[in-house]
């Protein structure tokens, strides 16, 4: 499938800031399931900084914006050719040992309820267990925007029984780690088709490590594994660690953020 992305993030400051520094994970991952046709990231007034591929295989790009500025626009445009690999992250070069992803963080820490949920399913092998855990999370947390926020933890989302893709991913990571399956947070894009289901174009899901297959994606928010509708950008322990854009402004102004994302199937 050929997907085009137009993703604009606008940061607005209530007074001029001296400078802005950002770190981006905005480049599609290099693996067998996706091939970049063209891809461009622009930052208004930005100076392109250092770039490197980190141990998890993500392309990380630094940017600095010299002030004074009252707004910064980050625009991502590109086209990616995707293939359905049933969630398997085949051919992805990375060096971080999977065991590293057994460590929990604040949003992915399991409380008693998450532990109980994690132990509520049984399966003959790791892959089946991973599917069962993902289904359990889908059942336990209904998709509903607006009830949770950026800092909601997996435990809080489970208690609410509602949340968005970030909460589903955090919860799946938490229950997977309880069952000793390395798990991580993945950020990317999702092509919103016309089937009437709720979708988030700037999307997030989880990957679980299955010894026989390697990393496998699970998207409990959509009860599926990533297929040709997904574009993968980067990963981390949790949403903050995997964030496509991390930034900070010097100058102590109040920041507002405005995001628009369009993911479309390209015309053949």
């Amino acid at each position: 499938m050929r997907l085009t992305v137009d993703h604009m993030t606008r940061y607005l400051y209530d007074r001029p800031v001296r400078s802005v520094v950002q770190s981006h994970r905005l480049t599609p991952s290099a693996f067998a399931g996706q091939k970049v046709v063209d891809w461009e990231v622009t930052v208004s007034g930005g100076l392109r900084g250092a770039t490197h591929r980190d141990g998890a295989g993500d392309q990380v790009q630094g940017w600095t914006i010299a002030g004074p500025v009252t707004s910064v626009e980050v625009r991502v445009r590109g086209t990616v050719e995707t293939t359905d690999l049933a969630g398997v992250l085949r051919g992805h070069r990375e060096t971080v040992a999977p065991e590293v992803y057994l460590r929990d963080t604040t949003p992915t820490r399991a409380d008693v309820a998450l532990e109980t949920l994690a132990r509520s399913v049984e399966a003959p092998d790791v892959l089946a267990l991973a599917h069962a855990l993902s289904a359990a999370v889908s059942d336990a947390i209904a998709y509903r925007p607006g009830v949770t926020h950026a800092h909601t933890t997996a435990a809080e989302a489970l208690a609410l029984a509602e949340g968005v893709c970030q909460d589903h991913a955090h919860a799946l990571i938490a229950v997977a780690r309880v069952r000793n399956i390395p798990a991580r947070y993945v950020s990317g894009y999702l092509f919103a088709d016309a089937d009437g289901n709720a979708h988030e174009a700037a999307h997030a899901w989880a990957e679980l490590f299955v010894p026989t297959l390697g990393w496998v994606g699970f998207d409990p928010a959509n009860r599926s594994c990533p297929d040709e509708r997904y574009i993968r950008l980067g990963s981390g322990f949790d949403a903050q660690d995997a964030a496509p854009i991390r930034g900070i402004a010097r100058g102590g102004a109040k920041e507002e953020m405005d995001v628009t994302v369009a993911v479309l199937a390209a015309q053949q």
Binding site: V21, G49, A50, H52, D54, V60, G62, Q240, G247
Partner: peptide
């Protein structure tokens, strides 16, 4: 570096780790 580690750190240098990792 608040962009790589604790986001609330006031002691560090934003973006330092990207410079470090790329050999700057």
């Amino acid at each position: 570096d608040p962009l790589c580690f604790r986001p609330d750190s006031m002691l560090g240098i934003p973006g330092l780790m990207d410079v470090y990792r790329s050999g700057g």
